[in-house]
Nucleic acid binder design. Structure first.
Length: 433
RNA sequence: UGCUCAGUAGUUCAGCGGUAGAACGCUUGACUGUUAAUCAAGAUGUCGUAGGUUCGAUCCCUACCUGAGCAGCCA
């Protein structure tokens, strides 16, 4: 007799198998019991018919509590009445671990309660589906960048100075020196690109901002590709191909999870068509002014989330907004060749109100300009000597971008809030569990 | 950090100036195809914390704590 996973049940129809499972719910009548089972691979039902099993087995089935762990032995049957398509007709049960008073009942719960029990909530169907899709995005990310000739160069998490100097950093000690948790690996990826051509990092990022929105986490995961000998136009092509690849991979490999979440697959499919629409910042401002909804928009403003939502909804597609004002962007971005007031950059705004999922730019290559920008930003030039070396020794045009894993996951899964898109979210007031 | 809203049973909520309610969950029983099963019976409370008003406060007032939504910052 084989031990299998629920997800493989379809390959064992009418066979007797053994499965290690947890009980999610139970319904029983006098002579039949329905056990709702999960094993991490999927969810399905075990049917215990009194006349087919020993008295002890039927009694045990009736006494099981929610989230008890057990081995079930039985025969797999195809059954149209099961939402999963298959179920197991139980022959015998073996209790592994008892469970008493499981807090998450099959009824409604509030956000705070569920988040306090996140370690248990992960067992429920929705977190299961979201984490499957998150995993597929991670897997597809490695596949995409490896097939495109990138290598993964890890940026340090502990840094000695503020990479951008703007956002709030988590302070810690590095023996007797001050240190900060990384809020971007980008500058290190630029060093990587000068050594290996095409590189990417994929690691945790920390922002000590007092952000409290559905789009922000204190700790999140970021994918930061950086490419040498590459101008912004080519970088945008990489970005749209990457996003389309992610969405297609989820469509190809996460059908079951998408069904659980009731995500519209036709809508997702539309996001795999490249190229994505592109508008300049100037055009975006005009569009907002003429929309009637944002009459106060002025050139030079950064867009808030209502503005981002409007822009992406206008195209019903992920849309690139190009070349923002220099004043609202970081020091390392390359100035526009014919315009003083904008830099060569692009944000990718996701549709359906999910906002910015990618921020990217072509980087300043000129040593003198970059030095001047660092000073102007009020940063300590000494901290950036290594970064300036990249311009001293064979500086080349290069571009890169950063994608927020959880923002992308929230968008692709269609979840309301980014906290659902990471196993243990770190939020403004939450560091437990 | 600002604005808005909310804290009552394990959970989700209702309630009222006179000392506590429902549903689900839990316990016991019935039921051979249930899908958040159904039916019957039973147990369950520092009404967020501290002051104040009042004969009396879970209810009104003040402060604080906690959480949620929205905004800013950004991925």
């Amino acid at each position: 007799m084989k031990t299998i996973s629920i997800i493989d049940a379809k390959n064992h129809v009418d066979e007797e198998v053994k499965i290690g499972v947890w009980l999610t719910n139970k319904r029983s009548s006098g002579k039949i019991a329905f056990l709702q089972l999960r094993d991490g691979s999927a969810f399905f039902q075990g049917v215990v018919v009194k006349s087919n099993v020993s008295e002890e087995t039927f009694e045990m089935a009736k006494e099981l509590h929610q989230e008890s762990s057990l081995y079930v032995v039985g025969e797999i049957h195809e059954d149209k009445r099961s939402p999963f398509g298959y179920e197991i007709e139980v022959k015998s049960l073996e209790l592994v671990g008892e469970s008493q008073d499981y807090p998450i009942t099959p009824k409604e719960h509030g956000t705070e309660f569920l988040m306090d029990h996140r370690h248990l909530w992960l067992r429920s169907t929705k977190p299961y589906a979201v984490m499957q899709i998150r995993n597929e995005i991670i897997r597809a990310t490695y596949e995409f960048f490896n097939k495109e000739g990138f290598i993964k160069i890890d940026a340090p998490i502990l840094t000695g100075s503020a990479p951008e100097g703007t956002t709030e950093l988590f302070h810690t000690k590095y023996f007797d020196k001050d240190a900060y948790l990384s809020q971007s690996g980008q500058l290190y990826e630029e060093a990587g690109a000068m050594a290996f051509g095409k590189v990417f990092s994929f690691g945790p990022t920390f922002r000590a901002e007092k952000s409290k929105t559905r789009r922000h986490l204190i700790e999140f995961w970021m994918i930061e590709p950086e490419m040498a000998f590459m101008h912004q136009e080519q970088s945008l092509e990489v970005q749209e191909q990457y996003i389309a690849f992610l969405v297609q991979s989820v469509l190809d490999n996460c059908d079951y999870a998408l069904d659980i979440l009731e995500r519209d697959k036709e809508v997702l499919k539309s996001y795999t068509k490249t190229p994505f629409p592109k508008i300049s910042y100037d055009e975006a401002v005009e569009l907002l002014q003429n929309s009637g909804e944002f009459p106060d928009t002025k050139w030079g403003d950064d867009f808030g989330s209502p503005e981002e939502t409007y822009l992406a909804e206008h195209f019903s597609m992920p849309v690139f907004v190009l070349n923002y004002p220099k004043a609202i962007k970081p020091f390392y971005m390359k100035p526009h060749p014919t315009r003083e007031d904008v830099v060569i950059c692009a944000d990718l705004l996701a549709p359906e109100g999910y906002g910015e999922i990618i921020g990217g730019s072509e980087r300043e290559t000129d040593l003198d300009n970059l030095t001047a920008q660092i000073k102007k930003a009020g940063l300590n030039e000494k901290d950036y000597e290594w970064y300036l070396d990249l311009r001293r020794y064979g500086s080349v045009p290069h571009s890169g971008f950063g994608l927020g894993l959880e923002r992308a996951t929230t968008w692709i899964t269609g979840e309301e809030h980014i906290r659902e898109a990471i196993p243990f979210p770190r939020l403004l007031n939450r560091i437990y569990p």
